[in-house]
């Protein structure tokens, strides 16, 4: 039984913004951010969602918590379908989000103490001794109680991350969606935050959806990964298997493009050419065909569907070869 189950989710935004947009009919042109997104997160599992900027991964995270309206699809969380704002309001008691910019996601004129107490107050779960509870929350993420008096801008990047973790965990959620949880952190601090998240996961029985462009990081923290390109999931599978043998050409290129900290493994050739196209010019057929080294006529005319190739592996490619798996 999955904790979070997403079926055929799609988000598009109206193209015309501004005052004139207010008077235009709702059927005006829309920009598709993503569509046909289906995946599940099991209880206690960490799913890593990988993609480059423009892939739609951040919008997807927001849509999952009802912060961005969806145009199609269904979100089931904790056994209940989530469709209305009331559903999502209820969902937010047992799911939380960590934002990409830790400092900017903390209201700038409130103290850390006030920020940590806020979810408890909003959901009517504030204990009588709120200060002690706040101190406990700070302690849980490895900060001392005196941090309660500080303002967000007085925190270092790592400290702001820890406050973000504490705030996400305030209501004892079952699912935490973390958008680039280590963006902007030095590698030595990145490890601290990831270890903290992993430690809390086992202690509190959490599930994570971790969104990042950082392949090296996501490889170590995820049980399964999902690769997103230009608004489509192109490959989903167990982390170890996907990194060992990526089946989608984009996943292959992405993994090959990552610079390795070893001068003996320098790449002579180029993993992938071109840049991710604008959402306004999404290629016809397969979204990756404009950059795919293996693209053929079929790829330019027909969009592939996400199909099962081997155990627990899904790939959206006409030509992905399951034979490669059997050699394994």
């Amino acid at each position: 039984m999955s904790l979070l189950d997403v079926q055929d989710l799609a988000v598009s935004l109206p193209l015309s913004l501004g005052l004139s947009g207010a008077f235009k009919p709702k059927t005006a042109r829309r920009l598709e951010i993503f569509s046909d997104i289906s995946f599940a997160v099991a209880a206690g599992e960490t799913l890593g969602l990988v993609g480059e900027s423009g892939s739609g991964k951040t919008t997807l995270a927001r849509a999952l918590l009802g912060l961005t309206p969806t145009q199609a699809g269904r979100i089931t969380f904790d056994g209940r379908l989530r469709a209305t704002q009331a559903d999502f309001a209820q969902m937010r008691r047992t799911s939380a989000m960590m934002f990409q910019d830790a400092v900017a996601s903390l209201s700038p004129r409130m103290t850390v103490g006030a920020l940590l107490a806020e979810p408890l107050i909003i959901h009517g779960q504030a204990p009588r001794d709120l200060a002690a509870k706040v101190a406990d929350m700070l302690h849980l993420v490895g900060l001392t109680a005196d941090f309660a008096a500080r303002y967000p801008h007085e925190l270092s990047g790592g400290q702001a991350r820890r406050v973000g973790v504490a705030r996400a965990l305030a209501l004892n959620p079952k699912l935490v969606i973390a958008d680039e949880p280590t963006a902007g952190l030095d590698v030595s601090v990145q490890g601290e935050i990831l270890n903290l998240m992993r430690d809390l996961k086992t202690r509190l029985g959490l599930s994570y959806l971790i969104i990042s462009h950082n392949l090296a990081m996501i490889r170590h923290v995820s049980d399964r990964i999902a690769v997103m390109y230009l608004g489509r999931l192109v490959e989903i599978g167990p982390t170890r298997a996907v990194f060992a043998q990526p089946l989608h050409p984009y996943a292959q290129s992405l993994i090959a493009a990552e610079p390795l900290p070893d001068p003996r493994k320098r790449r002579a050739d180029l993993a992938i050419s071109g840049e991710i196209p604008s959402l306004l010019h999404r290629p016809k057929g397969c979204v990756f065909q404009s950059r795919c080294p293996q693209a053929q006529a079929l790829c330019r005319s027909d969009a592939p569907v996400l199909r099962a190739l081997g155990p627990n592996r899904l790939v959206r490619c006409h030509f992905a070869d399951p034979a490669r798996l059997q050699e394994d």
Binding site: G191, L215, H220, L260
Partner: peptide, 20 residues
């Protein structure tokens, strides 16, 4: 220590990432 911290530097998955 810096080299050891980089998650890209070790191929095998580790339960705990090294830190400084």
């Amino acid at each position: 220590a810096l080299l050891a911290c980089d998650p890209a530097s070790f191929p095998n998955l580790t339960p705990v990432l090294p830190t400084i």
